[in-house]
Design a protein around this nucleic acid. Structure first.
Lengths: 222, 222
DNA sequence: GTCTATAATTAGATAGAC
DNA sequence: GTCTATCTAATTATAGAC
């Protein structure tokens, strides 16, 4: 009960064993909402009742914090989509492949709804050239892009996937699958609906499967 | 040739009659690339060899500059899509309506390629609640959203548009149509292609018409 | 209307007590 | 490892000479 006891009424001296993860998750949200330049380390710390210098203690710099956040999110995405990787789909027939891809597309929509920060950060960074964009593209986006390419090409040849150039398809897919969650605050203002409601996510996944894999229903089932 | 003559080698004292428009266009680019918080008025001025206080002279504040930029861009979009407004499509049969909508979709893609700043600003702002988002949604996004709604519902009833909930369709369409231009720097790094090349834009528009208006080709022609 | 100088605030990072 | 205090640099906005 010193004289300055109530200057920071909620914050007391305390060690949190999970503080690194707590700070990282706060950073995801802030970087996603404001972009790298717009995000403030003070705000990231304040959001979880920590102090701004703790970020420089647990991470080397604001840039290193951003890198750790992106690594973490792409790690989660990789776990979610492990079954559509080329090593997993080798040897499947096109019908099985189509089913796997439809499931992957639905899970990608679910992931974008659950972790909108990944697509928010990507779309923020992708608007201007930077060292961060070069690193993120080379390290995470390109491997993801190349991983789904062979499956798409096969499904397109089989007449199951829409006849769209893969590079265009990639951006159509990412944009169409992620925007409602990237811009969830706008969705709520514009439509009065919550895009994170299971009904929205289900209908959204169904819609993308229907328009991007139009030959799926007609494909032979075995 | 005073002693400080070369401190600002390119900038000389000069009055530009079009300076307000020059500053506004510089602001579009900066707000699109960095978001509101990440954009700096110094950088906006420097980009066009002007001085930072000129922004406060010609616009009230950074916020007023942002508002003027958004008004300007939505004005351009309105001109581009005037023919798909409800007042223009009243009385058309569904086949004519489908043709108008396909053309509108292609022009929207062309607009997003030519003026990526509009969708960049929208996606930056839509990531977090703010007074700016509320104003932009109520003033510009909602009227646009409501204007294309009746046409879509009619085409969907006629079996020409994909059977997708309009609110979901809206975000699928905007995301799919704009992402390659919003994230053009990433597209170049990832694919080596330029999404603003006419071949890309044409193929992109064709793809969106094919997947969103799948009944167009089969529709009776008059 | 342009430009320099500067006020007031906030940013990321660091030092050092605890 | 936490926390306060503070450094340097950057921010938006304003005052006033030209």
């Amino acid at each position: 009960m010193q004289g300055m006891a109530d200057r920071n009424p909620v914050r007391q001296r305390r060690a949190r064993p999970d503080i690194r993860e707590v700070l990282l998750e706060s950073a995801l949200v802030e970087f996603g909402a404001k972009g790298f330049d717009g995000a403030s380390t003070r705000s990231i710390a304040r959001r979880v009742e920590a102090h701004q210098p703790q970020l420089n203690y647990h991470f080397e710099s604001k840039a290193a914090l951003w890198t750790a956040a992106v690594d973490y999110l792409f790690g989660l995405l990789g776990e979610e989509l492990a079954d559509v990787l080329p090593t997993e789909i080798a040897g499947l027939d096109v019908s099985q492949l189509a089913t796997i891809f439809a499931g992957g597309l639905r899970r990608f929509v679910g992931f974008a709804a659950k972790h909108p920060e990944l697509n928010q950060i990507m779309v923020h960074e992708g608007t201007a050239a930077s060292d961060r964009l070069e690193w993120m593209t080379a390290t995470h986006v390109k491997p993801f892009f190349e991983a789904i390419k062979p499956g798409w090409l096969l499904l397109r040849s089989a007449g199951i996937a829409a006849p769209i150039d893969f590079e265009i398809l990639y951006y159509v897919l990412i944009g169409a699958a992620s925007l409602p969650y990237v811009n969830a605050p706008e969705v709520r203002l514009l439509t009065g609906r919550d895009p994170k409601h299971p009904d929205w996510i289900k209908a959204h996944g169904d819609a993308l499967v229907a328009i991007l894999l139009p030959g799926l229903a007609a494909a032979p089932s075995g």
